[in-house]
Amino acid sequence: MQNKLSPFLKTVMIFGYAFLYLPILTLIIFSFNSSRQVTVWQGFSTRWYTALLQDETLLKSLLISLQVATSAATLAVILGTLAAISLVRFGRFKGRGFFGILTTAPMIMPEVITGLSLLLLFVGLEQIIGWPHGRGIFTITLAHTTLCMAYVTIVVRGRLVDMDVSLEEAALDLGARPIKVFTAIILPIIFPALLSGWLLAFALSLDDLVIASFVAGPGSSTLPMVIFSSIRFGITPQINALATLIISTVAIGVMIAGWLMHRNK
């Protein structure tokens, strides 16, 4: 049955992959264009990459984004793992259904709603208890953690469900304490899921524009916010250069991850 793709399926697949990759390819090609006018090719140049490295606003926002993404991904992995363990291993406790809905909802909620509601929460909290004081990196991190933990929960949950419970039962029967069962058995088995959950959360946080725009304060513009304000007024070759750097970093990362997973199998 395999390898017998009909001509129709083959055509659609070629078209589909071209659709996914041609736009990205144009970004990369024209990042090496020497002309300021992005769409007319005038010769090979790396001047936009040099310009990129000298753009201080952009570099500062990159640092902020990396800082937010690292803490949000780490927090999201901790919270998401706890949520996944509760949902998979604790049976039918009261409120489990509601808890299950709450854990997946941030994933599909339109970002405009999530961003708006979190900002209103932060403003309200500051009025009532004076915390969080103002908005900035801290509030963006809290918001991104909430968004990302939904994805982590799903990834870890899938792994926990696949996992053989008898190992845990055996350990418990032999007198291991729950904490010991977690660190000695569950953690090593779900570790790949934690890693991919962390990476996914990191990428999502690095990518988010809408939620960050709502909950950011003065001086805490993230990378997508800076990119957005510059591309709103049209295309600039410098952004093409940035896109090329981001895409190649991600591509190399995904390829390494894919190769590692393939080797482990």
């Binding site: 996914l20 990759y21 992005v38 769409t39 990119i227 591309i231 093409n240 995904v254």
Partner: peptide, 22 residues
């Protein structure tokens, strides 16, 4: 499958931006 997932990991904003140029 990896080729389908790959664009998802790159910047959403920049993928929309690519279409402005096109």
């Amino acid at each position: 499958l990896m080729l389908v997932i790959l664009p998802f990991w790159t910047s959403f904003l920049l993928r929309v931006y690519a279409w402005i140029g096109i």
